[in-house]
Every structure is written in structure tokens, then in C-alpha cells.
Simulated scan of single mutants.
Amino acid sequence: MTTASLLIPALLLDAIFGEPRWLWSRLPHPAVLMGRAVTVVDQTLNTGKHRKARGVLAIVVLVACAGWLGWVLALFGPLVEILVAAILLAQRSLCQHVEAVASSLSRGPNEGSTAVAMIVSRDTTGMTTPQIVRSAIESGAENFSDGVVAPAFWFLIGGLPGLMIYKITNTADSMIGYKTPRYRSFGWAAARLDDLLNLIPARLSALMIAVVGRVLRSWSEIVKDARRHRSPNAGWPEAAMARALRIALAGPRSYDGKMQEFPWVNGSGSRSAGAHSINKAVSVLWATWALGLALTVAIVALL
């Protein structure tokens, strides 16, 4: 069977069942296990001199182990490949987390800021409703690329080894890929490899969102905004989503108590979006997921 034919049921299983609490309350989720592996290399190698070289060694070890594990799991047959791929995709859980922010906002900004704090790293205390809405939508767009399109893309390209390598890299980047004194050198390799692996998926995500949102005619503006983003990849799905919803995203936000000025994405869009915009964003994410599923079916038909 081709990876495309295996991806179809994996996408459907993830969309239907998401992250079953009854299962992951009893067993450690693979993402948790990957996090533990990153913690081990961090504690073992992130000491002394030559932190950058040690960080390169860390990501090489993690990638090699993840690729090997993916190869071993694939030996157990298509059913195991489908189940593992479904577990490592995140469409349903992503949309549920974003929807939870809209639901919490109906009870007031304090509830909304508490909910959005679960999915963003910026300061959320004292956020206004538009700030909460922008944060939720930005997180949804970025994580659609990181958590759905990129894993599916690398599964198509490299099967379970490709998917596992992507996921361990993405996990490492989320844990050690920061420009802090501790991780500036050690996390450099993880961050750069994650940027590389997300290069195509991020742009593909933006293109698909633009098609679904019927804003493909604004592609040049989407590209312009994406290139102004501090991340080489995150700005692409955000810029497409901003235009699909006709709202402004990004802009100033606070980290660790310090306000930072970031450029607006689609700055001419509305800056007073409400909870309904979050629900519209979730609808766009599901429609884009459906487009991805249709494209996968087309690949199978062509092959």
C-alpha cells in the first residue's frame, strides 16, 4: 500500500476520535514520550562547553532514534502505520482547543484568557476580547500547519520514519528551540531543522487556506505579510487565515511582562474581532482539512 492510501484512514480516524481521554488517561501519549526523550538529551548534553555542537549531537540522536522506531513500527503492517499516524495527527484536538476559547469567552474575558493560556505562550492576564480572539486564531492557523499538514506531508514523503522524524524535531523545537541563555546555542540545531522541515508544509497550508477562504487573489499580500513575520514559517498560515476572515492578526503582545511590537498581519482588517471569528476560523480549518483529504484521495487515484 502507498503512504497516501494509508494516510486517508489515518486522517479520518483522527478527525472522528481525536485524543480519546479514556486511552491517554491510562497510557502515556507518544508526544509525552517524545518530550521525555528531549528532556533526557537536554539534561545529559546541555552542559559545559561547546553547547552548539552538543545540540547538533542531541538532534542527530533524537532523529536517528525516531526514524529507527518508525521503521520498526512499520514492519508490523499497514494497520499499525495507520493507527500511529492517526495518533500523531492533531486536527480534531486542535479545533477543540480553539473552540474552547470561543466557548469560554461567552462567559467573559477572564474565562477566555484562561482558556487561551492553554494554547499560547504569550502573557494572557488582562487580555481584551480582541486580543484573546487573535491569539486563538493565530494558534489555530500555526498549529494546523505544524500539527496536521506537516505530519501528513512527511508521512506521505517518508512513511512512519518520516512522520516520527518530523514529530521529534517539532517537539524538540518546542522545548529547547528558544533564544534564551540556556538554549540559544544548544537548541539552535533543533530550531533550524524544524524550520527546514516546515518550509513546504507552511506554504502549502497557506495556499490551501487561501483556496478555501477564496482569497487566492490576495496571494501577493499574503506572501508579503508572511515574510514580515518573526518566524520563517508561522506567518504563512496566519497571513492566509487573516485574509480569509478579513481580520488583522499578530500586532503587539506581551511576553514575560514585556510588551513587544510585532507587525500586523493584514493590518487593514478588523482589529475588533469577537468570538464568532474564532468559530469561523475553526470552520476554515475543517474545510481546509477536507481539501487536504480530497487531495490525498486524488493522489491515490493518480497512482
Score class of each variant (00 low, 15 high):
residue 16 I to H: 10
residue 36 R to G: 13
residue 214 R to K: 14
residue 75 L to A: 15
residue 27 L to E: 04
residue 19 E to G: 08
residue 302 L to F: 15
residue 95 C to M: 11
residue 141 A to S: 10
residue 245 L to W: 01
residue 53 A to F: 05
residue 142 E to D: 06
residue 198 N to C: 07
residue 187 G to L: 04
residue 87 I to W: 08
residue 297 V to I: 15
residue 135 S to T: 08
residue 59 I to Q: 03
residue 243 R to Y: 05
residue 288 T to L: 09
residue 17 F to S: 14
residue 155 F to D: 07
residue 156 L to F: 11
residue 299 I to F: 15
residue 161 P to K: 01
residue 82 I to V: 15
residue 243 R to S: 02
residue 190 A to V: 02
residue 170 N to R: 09
residue 40 V to G: 00
residue 56 V to P: 00
residue 87 I to Q: 05
residue 176 I to R: 05
residue 20 P to C: 11
residue 244 A to C: 09
residue 127 M to W: 10
residue 69 L to K: 02
residue 83 L to I: 15
residue 109 P to F: 10
residue 159 G to V: 09
residue 89 L to N: 02
residue 228 R to Y: 08
residue 65 C to N: 01
residue 294 A to P: 14
residue 302 L to Y: 14
residue 37 A to F: 00
residue 153 F to Y: 14
residue 47 T to H: 13
residue 131 Q to C: 06
residue 193 L to R: 01
residue 119 I to E: 06
residue 274 G to H: 03
residue 121 S to N: 13
residue 77 G to N: 10
residue 132 I to P: 00
residue 38 V to W: 01
residue 279 N to A: 06
residue 217 R to Q: 14
residue 249 L to V: 04
residue 229 H to K: 13
residue 165 I to G: 00
residue 32 V to S: 09
residue 135 S to F: 03
residue 279 N to R: 15
residue 157 I to P: 07
residue 211 V to F: 14
residue 169 T to C: 12
residue 138 E to T: 05
residue 147 G to E: 06
residue 109 P to D: 10
residue 97 H to S: 15
residue 228 R to G: 15
residue 86 A to K: 06
residue 18 G to T: 11
residue 290 A to L: 15
residue 172 A to D: 04
residue 183 Y to Q: 01
residue 206 A to P: 00
residue 237 P to Y: 02
residue 259 M to D: 09
residue 217 R to S: 15
residue 273 A to V: 02
residue 74 A to F: 06
residue 225 D to W: 11
residue 34 M to A: 09
residue 202 A to R: 01
residue 270 S to H: 04
residue 201 P to W: 06
residue 111 E to K: 09
residue 168 I to Q: 02
residue 230 R to L: 14
residue 195 D to W: 03
residue 148 V to F: 07
residue 212 V to A: 12
residue 27 L to M: 12
residue 245 L to E: 02
residue 57 L to T: 08
residue 29 H to Y: 08
residue 162 G to C: 08
residue 23 L to V: 10
residue 300 V to A: 13
residue 280 K to S: 10
residue 196 L to A: 11
residue 142 E to P: 02
residue 18 G to P: 12
residue 110 N to D: 13
residue 1 M to C: 15
residue 136 A to M: 07
residue 45 L to D: 00
residue 249 L to H: 05
residue 279 N to V: 02
residue 57 L to E: 00
residue 25 S to W: 10
residue 27 L to V: 12
residue 137 I to Q: 01
